[in-house]
């Protein structure tokens, strides 16, 4: 079991973190979310071009770099922490589904960043469904792909990432019962990795504020009412990170452990992420409730992610089934 990042993974993290800090800091995220398309196409082009992120997990024979899910988790943690707008997660979920079911046709376009894809989730919703070139849907063991079709933009709680109602269907591009099952677990791992990043950034924001905001002639972080909650939030971060690393490791190297590790990741990290984002917002005081402050963006992303793959109870029920309870 590998729960610690390798040197290469740390370098990948630094590269993505450094890039996002320069190209997509929070003021830019706000500008992007208020723009027509909801994201900055230039940033999206560069993360796929310069950093090669859309091709990260695409096998080399289809033009990607054939990296593992542990690397993907490192990247998603960073895009989550940065609240990166746009179709990166959507396209990543599509890449996971296609890689696991053995598609050859669509992966090259995803790898080179020319195809924006998404996957139909429950209720015919899809992340970035309005702007995706290709909408994938799961039909039993088969994966169908549709270019075009009806798209209806939805109003989202999380202003940093859009969703739309889409039409499932289209041509069958791949089929594999096992691949579809694995892909569903991998969606859970991918979202958990993003949640870990949202959690970490929410905690970092309030820890920093606790060191500068003064009340009653003391920094608020020196009050135990604040400090002890931050300590509890840190405990959640430690456990969440351990769970995500384990799930990503299982995805790459221990397929028999993947299902329960993935369900665990959604049950624990989904909740922890929302709780930490919520407490971070609350501990900021009144400023945390303003539109101008970023706390609500993390809070809303955390809630959106917690229910992205369905109501949280489904992950708990799945875990219970896997444990044969």
């Amino acid at each position: 079991m590998k729960l610690v990042l390798t040197t290469e993974q740390q370098e990948l993290r630094q590269a993505v973190r450094g890039f996002l800090a320069a190209a997509s800091p929070l003021p830019a995220v706000r500008a992007a979310m208020e723009s027509e398309g909801g994201h900055d196409p230039e940033v999206y082009r560069r993360i796929n071009g310069e950093l090669g992120l859309s091709g990260l997990i695409v096998p080399e024979e289809h033009g990607g770099s054939g990296a593992g899910y542990a690397e993907l988790a490192v990247v998603l943690e960073e895009t989550g922490a940065a609240l990166l707008p746009g179709p990166f997660l959507a396209t990543t979920l599509a890449a996971i589904l296609l890689r696991e079911t053995g598609d050859k046709e669509l992966l090259p376009g995803i790898a080179d960043g020319t195809t924006v894809a998404t996957v139909v989730l429950d209720g015919n919703r899809a992340l970035n469904g309005a702007e995706a070139d290709v909408v994938l849907s799961i039909d039993g063991d088969r994966v169908r792909a549709l270019r075009g079709g009806e798209r209806t933009a939805l109003t989202t709680l999380d202003p940093t990432r859009r969703q739309a109602l889409v039409e499932p269907g289209g041509d069958v591009v791949a089929a594999s019962a096992e691949g579809v099952a694995r892909a569903r677990d991998l969606f859970a791992v991918a979202v958990a990795a993003e949640q870990l990043g949202v959690l970490r950034a929410s905690l970092e924001a309030i820890v920093a504020y606790g060191k500068v905001r003064v009340a009653f002639n003391r920094f608020i972080g020196s009050y135990q009412g604040v400090k002890h909650r931050l300590a509890d939030m840190h405990c959640k971060l430690e456990q969440a990170e351990s769970i995500v690393r384990h799930a990503a490791w299982a995805a790459d190297e221990a397929p028999e452990e993947l299902a329960s590790a993935a369900a665990l990741a959604q049950v624990y990290v989904g909740r922890a992420c929302f709780e930490v984002a919520r407490d971070s917002l609350l501990l900021h005081g009144g400023i945390g409730f303003t539109w101008e402050h970023d706390a609500h963006l993390f809070y809303k992303r955390a809630k959106a992610d917690e229910v992205l793959l369905g109501p949280p109870r489904i992950h708990r029920a799945r875990l219970a089934d896997l444990l044969e309870l």
Partner: peptide, 27 residues
């Protein structure tokens, strides 16, 4: 059943954290 899931989740979360600390120490 759900309470047992909660116990499993908490136990496993801490066990994985302890294993991660061990691996970090090794590194």
């Amino acid at each position: 059943r759900d309470q047992l899931v909660e116990l499993y989740v908490r136990s496993r979360a801490l066990a994985l954290f302890n294993q991660r600390l061990a691996q970090e120490t090794k590194a």
